[in-house]
Design a protein around this nucleic acid. Sequence first.
DNA 1: GTATGACCTCAAGTAACCTTGAGGTCAACA
DNA 2: TGTTGACCTCAAGGTTACTTGAGGTCATAC
Lengths: 155, 155
Amino acid sequence: MTDYRSNDDVRATPDDWLSIGEVSARTGAAVSALRFYEELGLIASERDDRNQRRYPRHMLRRVALVSVAKRIGIPLQDLREAFADVPLDRPPSHQEWQRASRGWKRRLEERRQTIERLEAELTGCIGCGCLSMKACALLNPGDALAGDGAGPRRL
Amino acid sequence: MTDYRSNDDVRATPDDWLSIGEVSARTGAAVSALRFYEELGLIASERDDRNQRRYPRHMLRRVALVSVAKRIGIPLQDLREAFADVPLDRPPSHQEWQRASRGWKRRLEERRQTIERLEAELTGCIGCGCLSMKACALLNPGDALAGDGAGPRRL
DNA sequence: GTATGACCTCAAGTAACCTTGAGGTCAACA
DNA sequence: TGTTGACCTCAAGGTTACTTGAGGTCATAC
């Protein structure tokens, strides 16, 4: 908060850039995952004279958000959309981050509400032990239970 | 509630059993998915004289719970554990369903709390626009961000 | 001077969760 | 009689999100 020029701060000096190993260590994402994210266009890097990736510091935040998205079950493809307003080539401004973060909050809220609905349904339908299956939303496939393609499903 | 011997009720007469197509239509799960769940031991069926699967009505509930698990991101493998106390070969009793449903509620609550935590972090860290990365839980890989194996990740 | 470590590319493998396809049986309907 | 529809099996394919492996380049440490 106060020492915003600390070790962790965003500076623009070239030697402040991070190697892929450093980004990996700081974000917890595997080196291979970082290369994969770059392939998808979710993150970006420059190359040094040895053709090795160099990441500006602000990319750490972006990687962190990719990890968060993964945790809450947002497909990486959808992430591009979520990142639409956040520039890749320069440190995003306050405004840009805030605008993007509103979108993230919305997604989180949606997820939470889905879960809350399921909790309520589970309480009402199975928790009560009533064996009637007529009024049960859980057993009513009309809403969202039907499959919609191949591959693993998420929240 | 009152007409608990309705069309949807659990009865044990043999001709009340359902074909795979009927189970699919009623649960929203694809026929192929049902066969797959059976392979995993999550559901079970008997065969008629033509070697076709016949499902007792109480299996509908089980299929529905598999779908719910899918929705909230519980790996199907973990489901066996969640189903441990619910018998496959006969209609589960009130008590058995209730015991199982408590486990389900716990899982749902965990998911919801994870999301609520993330919401709070997002509000505090990125929403505020402070660019310091020292105190930010989102950017701190120590807790759960680090990868733990191959394959798609879930909540 | 060589060995180690960090990086590179590209291709193939893996895991979860299914779907699709090929080839076949059976009953009912026209 | 034949053809349609629902079911069967088994094998292979597809999607997401990566990891692993093979084969290679540098720079630094010993």
